[in-house]
Design a protein around this nucleic acid. Structure first.
Lengths: 136, 136
DNA sequence: GTTGACCTTACCATCAAGGGAAGCTTCACA
DNA sequence: TGTGAAGCTTCCCTTGATGGTAAGGTCAAC
């Protein structure tokens, strides 16, 4: 006899919020199979495990759609690690792209900021930089 | 006699989309002062300049609310560069925080990915990593 | 005078997350 | 047995920057 838990306990165990567990369900990630007579969602330990996977994947920044694919692969014994790695690689590229964008911003902003005295004076290289005419 | 331009030309000159110029106006960033008889927005060169500032600031990732403050300071002769620098510094911290988060994700993901053979095998360290039981 | 490019407003979607309302259920304790 | 608190349900709204689309008015060139 499998122990079933309510959404609140599942939330506590996984570190997700009950709100988000319902949201993931609505997004098609993990449909809850059982309900109590009163309509409460009931999760077994396998589903709890999958919720844990969702939590970990979100922590790594995977978008819902990719988590969907990962969950599918996880539950498919015919998967290949190539398929999994491909998803991870795509996400890794995405992450690196974002890092590059942010580093670009940081460099530019840091240069402007370093040139700014930050005192009572109205003159400001940061504003000057923003006014730099890039108009066509 | 100042030359006035329509939103389409302003968009072209600044690199913003007409859509976003209207959006910035709705957000209170830059209200367009003049309309043609037919109701078309008309921008003078000073406003075009400010739109350019908005464009540059967005390029650096500043959120609308901070751009609001920057525009206010830009147009206020009594500003101090300290105020400007403070805004830039806050945003810089924000950027660095995001970079750190992403780098964290990258490291973890890269480790998992490097351990994955990416072949026909079903066994996959990436999935194993995601299943890593973090349940309470 | 018609066509095509441009403008207007208004509404909807994205993405992950959360807020809050209104109403039902469960449980513990007096 | 009653009551109150805590937990659950669904539904709708908000965030932030951006884009899409629709329905309609305007302007200029041919």
């Amino acid at each position: 006899m499998e122990k079933l838990i309510t959404i609140g306990e599942a939330a506590q165990r996984t570190g997700l919020s009950a709100k988000m567990i319902r949201h993931y369900e609505a997004s098609g990630l993990l449909k809850c199979s059982k309900r109590s007579e009163a309509g409460y969602r009931l999760y077994d330990s396998q589903q709890l495990q999958l919720l844990g996977v969702i939590k970990q994947a979100r922590k790594l920044g995977f978008p819902i759609a990719q988590i969907q694919s990962l969950l599918d692969l996880l539950q498919n014994p015919d998967r290949t690690s190539r398929e999994v790695k491909s998803i991870a690689q795509r996400h890794l590229n995405e992450i690196e792209h974002k890092i590059n964008e942010l580093q670009q911003m940081r460099e530019t902003l840091k240069q402007l900021s370093d040139n700014c005295s930050g005192d009572e004076n109205a003159n400001c290289p940061i504003l000057d930089g923003l006014c730099q005419n890039s108009l066509k």
